[in-house]
Design a binder for these strands. Sequence first.
DNA 1: AACGCTTACAACCGCCACGCA
DNA 2: GTGCGTGGCGGTTGTAAGCGT
Length: 377
Amino acid sequence: MRQSSLDIHFLEERRTRCKMGRAPCCDKANVKKGPWSPEEDATLKAYIEEYGTGGNWIALPQKIGLKRCGKSCRLRWLNYLRPNIKHGGFSEEEDNIICSLYISIGSRWSIIAAQLPGRTDNDIKNYWNTRLKKKLLGRRKQSNTNRLSSPSEDPTDSNVSDSNALSNSTIERLQLHMQLQSFQNPFSFYNNPSLWPKLHSLQEQMILQSLNASPNSLMQHGLLSPQAGHEQQVYSYEQATASVTLQQDYGKINNTKIVELDNSSNENNNSHYTNTLVDSTIVSTRDGVEQSNAAVQPASSFQAELDDFLENKAVGFIPQEDQMAEFDSFKEMNGSKDSLSWWISNFDTKSASSNSWDSISFIQSEGIFQDYELGYQ
DNA sequence: AACGCTTACAACCGCCACGCA
DNA sequence: GTGCGTGGCGGTTGTAAGCGT
């Protein structure tokens, strides 16, 4: 016996609702997809400007007679129609901010977007995927080629040793930078071992030796600035070694310890990373509501990942070519010569800090809040 | 001019977190 | 405590425009 199309539709819908776990946000058969017409834009914009979203995006399209999914309306408004949106034409400064934050926090586009007034997460994501990433990958490809074109694979070969030494040096500097950054942003990429490049035990030793040798070695690595007026960049030897201890002692590390360390460093250098972090998190909450536990959430996540690291990933560090190349790419970016300080120096000019979160002197909370308030009336 | 390839970006999809009943 | 509806977000896809041959 044949089922009518109505029955089939009903069964499919029920199947969707029952088996697939949840109902769709809208009736997909009756919503328009694809590019928005100017008329639709005008309708949506006019309504929101006059009445706001009413706190319910799903119901909004029906109210105004748009055959669109509520989510689609929301995206259209946020990414395109709301006031003060900038499209394209990313400046060098914005490039650096995006790169720096991406290195620091990864693909947290909404947070990155919060640091760039007028930019949307979607815009930045697209920009990164289509341009900035390729910029890096292009260099990465080049550095891969350079390495692979090495005349011998014999590890005793001096050419190879030099090449590896350079890579090791690069990773050393990155690791050092990670250690130092960890004071100011305990939840960053640098403090999340599961995200770190896998290191050979010898490389780890080199890093630790380098840190334990003397504070001067840090200056030689360009990670401590002796310049006056750049107090935020100067770390004490105790701080550096304490950081190493923290990173070594994965099993004992906890968030309280990190915060305590940070607070002590704050007393010395006016660098209020905790506030900065909290501010950043608040800024990133688009509903404009302060979430008091927002800074705690990543901490527990961090702890969980740390545990996971201890269980599964702490053994067998193996250097991976593509990871090394990735960091070479960052190194080479901006024409920097064998130095990972390219983004540091860029932000020094603005904030006298090597920390990308701290460098959020460009967080202009007021402007950002205004911006998002417009989007979430 | 036609075709194919690449690029840029708008839009969609699906998962997750949160608030509320 | 639980389930549901919704918003938020990151990843992915679709497609138009640009470009080279």
